[in-house]
Amino acid sequence: MGKYSEDPLWADIEPLPTDEGGPNPLAAIAYSEEYEETMSYMRAVMAANEYSDRVLELTEDLIDMNPAHYTVWLYRAKTLFHLDKDLREELEWLNETALEHQKNYQIWHHRNLIVDRLDDCEGETEFVEQMFVKDAKNYHVWSYRQWLVKRFGLWETEELEFTERMLREDVRNNSAWNHRWYIVNGREAEGVKGEWDEGLRKRELDFAKNAVGKTPQNQSPWNYLRAIVRTAGVPLASLKEFAEQYASLDRPDSVRSSFALDLLADIFAEEEGGKDKAGKALDLLAAKYDPIRKNYWAYRKSQLGLESSTPEAVVAA
């Protein structure tokens, strides 16, 4: 006897118990009676295509017990829309649930469906930022934030400052860098210039260079810099002077960033007669500054048509 079987409200439903397929199922879960009963009623209402208030309660119960239950989430959304429910109320319930199960993917997809239908994102960016206090790199939350920006056209509002805030907190947070890239460049399909705009480009270059200044061995801003010049069609060599502040073949003992050396190798390779210098930079990476990737650096040399050299030779030279 359980919560549902004893409830007259559910008397008309014939529950569908779990079909385990046979007498010896593999990896069978010893469900609690409560879970088993609730799922049995869930299966029954889904089979009958029932969309009702009591179904909402049922889904709430199940989500409490198993927030990763994608079927129940999708059915709940369908039911809400079918009944034309107050979606603000749904969001309030979701807020509580989200705090408990932040890493759960389904919850964010559900939120996305609700807010899309509401056609109003009031309070959403603030809520999301709150979520980042616990985990500033949550993939689903960042994806949701991107969707908000696009769906509600939040490009010009406070998104840029938001990424600045996040990066001030942790300049190595690659998710925040990715979001910044999206804010700046996400509208090129709509004809809004990203890095192609000179003023904007300068702002972004300065921002990334500043981050390198604080943390030279931080890959995120280096990736960002490379992407800016590539996207804008500016020669890679425009970063040469900057990269040389962190790595120089003239001072092979005081390289401050392997990413700077890697970038220099690419810059040299594009210069007339620069292949040998590129090779030297790559040798330095393989022999001293990034030996775990020695095969990759050798591969890069081979792409330039250069022979690979032994580490001993590099160190001696």
Partner: peptide, 17 residues
């Protein structure tokens, strides 16, 4: 081991069995 059967807390994996 898991193929032999799982205790109730594994209901959390009911959708990814």
């Amino acid at each position: 081991t898991p193929l032999k059967g799982l205790p109730a807390p594994y209901a959390a994996m009911d959708a990814s069995r």
